[in-house]
Amino acid sequence: MTSEHDIPADVLERFSFYAREVSALTIMFHSRVAEEMGLSPTDEKCLDLALRSDGPITAGRIAELSGLSTGAVTGVIDRLEKAGYVRRVRDPHDRRKVLVEVTLPEERFAHLFIGAQQTLHEVLSQFTPDERDVLERYHRSLIEVFRRRVVKG
């Protein structure tokens, strides 16, 4: 039995190609950003996770969000701390807990992302508000399913 939501093989193949292309370009972009920051791509993305959190974040939460082991995240935090991007601080509500706090303002790296923002603006300007709503729904769903399957295993 088929439904209106069945995906023809050629459509799945095209979207797989697009996803692989975007993924490759994103990895290359973040590799360049990481290099300019003196970091590995993994360290740069973990720093990004810390930057996007609402204040200091635990190493365990970075591990959950990244899919890395807690041991790997400890190494990431060590390197970020050594490079001066983060510091470890005690949780004011539970002194036994250690939090990771970003020490440099996000604005310091904004220049590295200007081209990406311009690209996003150029592409989104080609779509109507209703089309952007569909694109947003697609991306939210993709992120949710991808995080569930890749990060959470």
Rank of each mutant, 00 (worst) to 15 (best):
V11I: 12
L49D: 00
R32F: 04
H30R: 09
E36Q: 14
M37N: 02
E36G: 10
E35Q: 09
A34M: 08
L25N: 03
L49Y: 04
F17L: 13
Y18I: 13
A34Q: 05
T26F: 08
S23N: 06
R14F: 15
C46V: 13
S3C: 03
H30I: 04
F15H: 07
D10C: 07
L47K: 02
G38R: 02
T26K: 08
F17N: 07
S31M: 06
E4P: 06
L51A: 10
P8L: 13
V22E: 09
V11A: 12
H30E: 13
P8K: 11
A34R: 05
V33N: 03
F29G: 00
F29W: 00
E35V: 01
L25G: 01
L51H: 10
P41E: 01
E4D: 12
E44K: 04
R20K: 11
I27V: 14
E44Q: 12
I27W: 11
E21K: 10
Y18D: 11
S40M: 05
L39I: 03
D43H: 11
D43S: 14
H5P: 00
E13F: 14
I27D: 15
T42W: 03
D10P: 00
S3D: 06
L51V: 08
D48T: 14
I7Y: 05
L49N: 01
M28R: 14
H30K: 08
R20Q: 10
A9Y: 11
S3Y: 04
M28Y: 09
M37F: 02
L12Y: 06
H30N: 11
L12D: 10
R20H: 08
A24T: 08
L39R: 00
S31A: 10
E44V: 01
S3E: 04
L51M: 10
D10L: 13
E36R: 15
D43F: 02
F17C: 07
D43V: 04
T42D: 06
E21S: 11
E4K: 15
S16G: 12
E13Q: 14
R14I: 14
T26A: 12
E35C: 02
L12V: 02
P8A: 12
K45V: 13
Y18F: 13
I7L: 15
Y18C: 13
F17M: 10
R14A: 15
V22M: 10
F17V: 12
I27K: 12
S16F: 02
D10I: 11
L39Y: 02
I7N: 07
S3R: 09
A19K: 06
R32E: 11
